[in-house]
Design a protein around this nucleic acid. Sequence first.
DNA 1: ACCTGAACACCGTTCAAGT
DNA 2: ACCTGAACACCGTTCAAGT
Lengths: 192, 192
Amino acid sequence: MTMENPSPNTREMILMAARAAVQTHGYNALSFRELAKDVGVKSASVHYHFPTKGDLAVALAGQYADEAAAFLDQLAASARDHDQLMADYTAVFRAALEQDNRMCLCGIMAAETADLPPEARREVERFTSVNTRWLVKVLTKRHPKAKQEALRARAAAIFAAIEGAQLVARGNGDIKVFDQIISAYEAVGLFS
Amino acid sequence: MTMENPSPNTREMILMAARAAVQTHGYNALSFRELAKDVGVKSASVHYHFPTKGDLAVALAGQYADEAAAFLDQLAASARDHDQLMADYTAVFRAALEQDNRMCLCGIMAAETADLPPEARREVERFTSVNTRWLVKVLTKRHPKAKQEALRARAAAIFAAIEGAQLVARGNGDIKVFDQIISAYEAVGLFS
DNA sequence: ACCTGAACACCGTTCAAGT
DNA sequence: ACCTGAACACCGTTCAAGT
């Protein structure tokens, strides 16, 4: 038999600490030595679990995409109406800013894409897919007769617009900027 | 008398090389030693012109905001119609992607805001202001009777949406993603 | 299976020294 | 005014060595 919720082992603690660090400072600023300090091991131990920094990037983005997929599945099953679903969706991105002005992990890794190994880039793309496919599902329920092509474009636009709102609000260090931008998106009908 | 266009001195060459590097790899990945190699001096010389990496960030973002202001002033004076102005505006962000999948300097620095000195953060915010104020001017010409409050919100939304389109397209390494998202923005009436 | 110390070539930064 | 070499504490990475 397997334990369902074992207490976090070193590998999981590294992933948790790394995620927080990347969402705040970015992937390039991530330090194996500081990570080791956070977890209580030596940096060579971090290399035992993740041979290179690139391997850590792959695991980080992959886990993030998986969790997003699980969360969104659950949200879609919650039988909320369209506007409530979209409000819950944008609230996830708002929550990152509330938590130490953090960013979406894949948003900040997209900015650093040039320094990621190809496999990590693929996980970042998968996170985008998870989001846009979910948005297509939500939009299809509201516009059953619309062309999938148009809904896919709309879904990509919604995702990009929210990522941009988060990026700009973070740059200005003001969560009210995020709220104002999201309201303007709603006002123009981007979400409906 | 002063020369109008002196050949680029070391300081200017450093700024040019640094801008290209940051737009591709981000501020945290920037290396004084590699910068020095690009320019043909030693890294200690880079520190002569920019004592710390933070000072370089300030100069970089400040120069970028200044150039954006000058470019947008010129564009506003070009007597183009609204749709053409907006097309020219989005084309600037597209051009960065075309050039080695680069990003807006202030977009990528916004992602790394936690590692910037406060003065550099202020320059990033100033770049945002330059853009949104220009967009308010453009929108005011089209909607003379609209409330400035609403136009400011719309301007911020347009800027954030375009930054997000650039970020997501870059993450996916596909400029067609940018074009598709911008088209969806137009279709929903975000720019008009 | 998991961790460590020591070494390597890198990094930003400082500073005394050169022209 | 501008540049440099050398030193410092950092970094990712490797590896032989420990338990």
